[in-house]
Design a protein around this nucleic acid. Structure first.
Lengths: 236, 236
DNA sequence: CGCAAACTTGATGTTGCTCAAGCTAGGTGG
DNA sequence: CCACCTAGCTTGAGCAACATCAAGTTTGCG
């Protein structure tokens, strides 16, 4: 089912049509991009690259999930995003990565080395535009996250997070959370204790169920959406 | 001195070479872009467009300063950026603006209407790539801001803000703050009272001087930088 | 079955928010 | 030209939300 399974040594042909970076491009354009790409794997917890490293290429997540983050000198961490299948990372026109990237679980990636990729941007029609769409979409997500971090209360942050995850995963009310509580806390600008307490509160109120620590079931999406937009019942 | 002054009815020729959007493009490419552009002005407090509006075009700030922001239904506001001379806004590949834009003081803009601009992206060599650089740079700023909003304490936020403004303005220790305290508060995820108290504290400690409400002089950049990166003396 | 890591729950503390007065500067009209 | 007026800034006192510190408890793995 997963490409990762099929890939277990030695890696066979990639399913070209599935690469998100090529979505919307002509067949010939897509095949030129695929030509420079290589598959890469990372184990859970492994670091792909760190903030400040030379950007050696662009990556696309094939399976698994990554966390992107920035650190303060004293170790405080802000996770800027969780990336799943089809999402792009590593675009760094200024030459160095501005965030670190780690695998949350085992991850398969498609890597486009910098050298070849840079050339393709100018040569492959539509590619620059496709990348523009990708970064614009990321920018939009970043702005939503700024609103969340700057102006939402803890319960509103957690509700927004659950709905975002549900959205990313398509399936409406059964969410997988591959990341731990401390990743969630560092994504929402909270502590793990506050995240945990809020989960418990939502469970007690019947908004969600927690079959396991890493799995959430949405029970009352409407009320969760009210919370996420700041209209939740403050009594709860 | 300002283009705004020179422009007072009727607008004369634009100084093409000064348009930031065209930076790095060939002369002929630049002139095609300028051909579709029009000048536009906005008074202090005026709204350029609101979140959810159809994106009718791309803008470049020529003089003055804008605030970009998002709102929650109950009126809580998060300012996602302050834009000065040479900065681009309004790129919205999905067709609608994802933030609102207002003039802080009187502003002069260069507007590239959507219709013509879309075509140019495909036709003008290097333009798509130039736009990619612009959005990548914005994305970088957005990620810095996420770290600030999620993980920095009040004094660290204010110190970071002052240094950012100093940076944007080039001149090292005399900063103009065209925006009011409530704009600063909504940018940093604080209240105006906390911003005001922190300014007073920095002044008392000799890190800054406040000749007027809208003007800051940096007196001890090193210590301000320590604060901004979270290494400031917690005793202060 | 035992161990360690991660999560949950509880008690207490602190930062920054809220509410409430003053204060100041800039603009207006007498 | 000056006094007034108002919007915005500053300052203060009390409070609430979330962080911190400290045990327990669960989960998954060897």
């Amino acid at each position: 089912m997963y490409a990762a399974t099929a890939l277990s040594n030695p890696p066979p042909k990639i399913d070209v049509s599935g690469l998100a970076l090529c979505r919307g491009l002509a067949r010939q354009a897509a095949s030129r991009i695929v030509a420079v790409s290589t598959l890469q794997r990372a184990k859970a917890g492994e670091t792909l690259f760190s903030e400040g490293d030379d950007a050696d290429g662009v990556y696309e997540v094939v399976t698994g999930m990554l966390r992107l983050y920035k650190l303060l000198p004293d170790g405080r961490r802000q996770i800027t995003g969780f990336l799943g299948t089809g999402q792009i990372l590593g675009l760094a026109p200024e030459g160095t990565h501005v965030y670190s990237a780690e695998a949350i679980n085992d991850v398969t990636l498609c890597r486009y080395p910098r050298a070849g990729f840079e050339r393709l941007i100018d040569e492959v029609p539509g590619l620059a535009r496709r990348l523009l769409a990708v970064t614009s979409h990321e920018l939009r997500a970043a702005q939503d996250q700024m609103l969340l971090l700057g102006r939402k209360a803890a319960a509103e942050k957690v509700a927004s997070f659950l709905l975002l995850m549900a959205d990313q995963q398509g399936n409406d009310d059964e969410i997988a959370l591959p990341m731990g509580r401390s990743d969630i806390a560092d994504y929402l600008g909270l502590t793990i204790e506050t995240v945990s307490r809020t989960f418990t509160k939502f469970k007690t109120e019947g908004l969600i169920a927690l079959p396991t620590t890493y799995r959430v079931e949405i029970r009352d999406r409407d009320q969760l959406e009210d919370f996420a937009s700041g209209q939740g019942d403050p009594e709860l």
